[in-house]
Design a protein around this nucleic acid. Sequence first.
DNA 1: TATAATTCTCTTTTT
DNA 2: GAGAATTATA
Length: 727
Amino acid sequence: MPADAAIDALLEGLNPPQREAVTHGEGPLLILAGAGSGKTRVLTHRIAYLLRTGQARASEILAITFTNKAAQEMRERVELLVGRATRAMWVMTFHAASARMLRAHADMLGYTRQFTIYDAADSRRLIKKCLDDLDIDVKRFTPRAMQSRISDAKNKLRSADDYRELVGDYFEQTAADVYQLYERELVRMNAMDFDDLLFRSVNLLEMFQEIHDRYAESFRWIMVDEYQDTNHAQYRWLQLLSSDHRNLAVVGDDSQSIYGFRGADIRNILDFQDDYPDAHVVKLEQNYRSTQMILDAANAVISHNRGQMPKHLWTDVGEGDPVRVREMSDEHAEARFVGAEIQRMVDEGVSRSEIAVFYRTNAQSRVLEDMMVRAQIGYQIIGGTKFYERAEIRDAIGYLTFLVNPQDQGAFTRIANSPRRGLGQTSLSRVIGYADASGIPVWEAAERHTEVPGLGTAAKKAFGRFMSTMQRLKERLDAGPPVGDLVDELLTETGYLDALKAERTIEAQGRLENLEELVHVAREYDATNPEGALDEFLQQIALLADADTIRDDEGLVTLMTLHNAKGLEFPIVFIIGLEDGVFPHSRAIEEGNVEEERRLAYVGLTRAMRDLTLTYARRRNSFGANSYGLRSRFLDEIPRELTDQAQREAAGLPAPGRVASWSGAAAASAEASEGGNVFRLGDDVEHSAFGEGVVTATEPGGIVVVRFASDGSERKLMADYAPIRRR
DNA sequence: TATAATTCTCTTTTT
DNA sequence: GAGAATTATA
């Protein structure tokens, strides 16, 4: 060990197992990192250590994450340790690294380097088209189901032919047909979907020895984050790159494997030691994040899963407060309760950015969002309807895509008649048909519209105008302008902006603003990538994840799904909708995937640093109809002494988590129909003097605690005598 | 060919 | 209950 002061500094402050992982030299390394055990710290310090000790050069480092945000964070933290050398490293997601390799060697696979990356929606549209072309009933064989089969096959590195050999029933037979056509269409359009990025880069490494050797020799040190979420394609990808030198260090936690539905194979981490019998294994079990109460609750829940790798998370930050569990009458009361609690905390000096609310499905965010707006609490929602899924943004990107990739019929179909140019379904099909028949890019077919059989005079004229605009833009593109300028000009020249302005509606106004935002995004890209090209910009936004849009320290409460919460931490966490059927999700229950849901619960619980509140509702409106749920089984897996229910019972209150008995509910509704003075948590009330408020607590003796909107004050009132009524 | 009206799905989770 | 997809109408 070199007695270098800089190296000592690097190891300072690390606990013994962390230090072990950082200083491990050559050979496979498995780091089992419990939640909050400082794995990013270990990874970044390991990279710095390898450089400092002269074992590795920066260009030999490949560090893989799942989201751009995680990659960005890792890059920044490594840079703090080693400075500029970071630039020579590949610190990025699986998909970004794959795309980069594929761009360099696209021609080897029959693609051009301008290939389009299709996101899930693009891919589904193409699958729909394939189904139509094959004359398959999309009611029986939904594009969605087909997409999931195809994606599943690709994640297992099965080509259409491979898949066909394994086909069992008629459904799979059909899926094989669709897969085959879909694949052919993708190649023809010079496009790849997300799964292809991995699949095709594995192809590349397997088929071309010299390319394989080049990358395998170049990346002598490979590090992988969130290894428990890798799928088979990613597994093979890593194997191809690391089998020569075997310097593969993976970090993960089997208890946090939550992407099985997307093909992640938990066996990758469970079997790592079988794959590499000489692997060095380090367990990080000291948690630096949460209180003991929170950890105990999380440990208790996860212990109901079978076959976990044994580990004992512990902390020395202290006992902390019990986990709060609250029952609400419905999802609105639940949202109001969360809002009132957030307001109370903010009044006590908590920053909004310290608070997060998690839920199982994106649909649950709506009620919360309504509440946050009404309560005027600043918030950010991660995921759901995404910026890049809006029609106008997709149109703009469609234009850019078509400019870059003249073979992309999907992009062509999208934009040719947007704004309206009198180019309907029929005319577009004729041009595409001509392109297919003559084996030319659709761009060229549209240019040669005079040769297209069956095209009317009006359509020919419209195509002429449209394509001369596109040609002008293409020339502009070839001059290599900043991407921001190009987007701006494109929207003007194509008449897109004028068409929107002419609408003079509020929606159109919103769309214009969104497009302005896109121009802004492009200009930011230009600023950070002075050499950047349009295809790279397109790749970057295609591979953007929801999680990448999370902003820090903006005084905003963060609302997101439990999946998006992985890897994050917040001092104060609310998890809502803890009902069987919601969480665990009904579909998971049906399919027998409750263990994955439980891991998701574990992920959620362990995000909280000091304050954790879990809520559930007796009644919930889903799909337009009321449904009555039971509290989540996960709640019952938390020992009572870790929650505040036991305390509240001791204080003479009915345990709030247990009021679910329907005698209580019946009594409450009877009271309500008589207009009596029984108030429940989350009720909106009106006081003749203080105005509107919400019930934040009830106490024995008919006392209710009400927070008033007017001044934010909280007052205890006698329900029977105070001048309040339910709104 | 474009719009308006009406019928259907749909809700897990996402790189 | 909302959005997309389909169908009817101009």
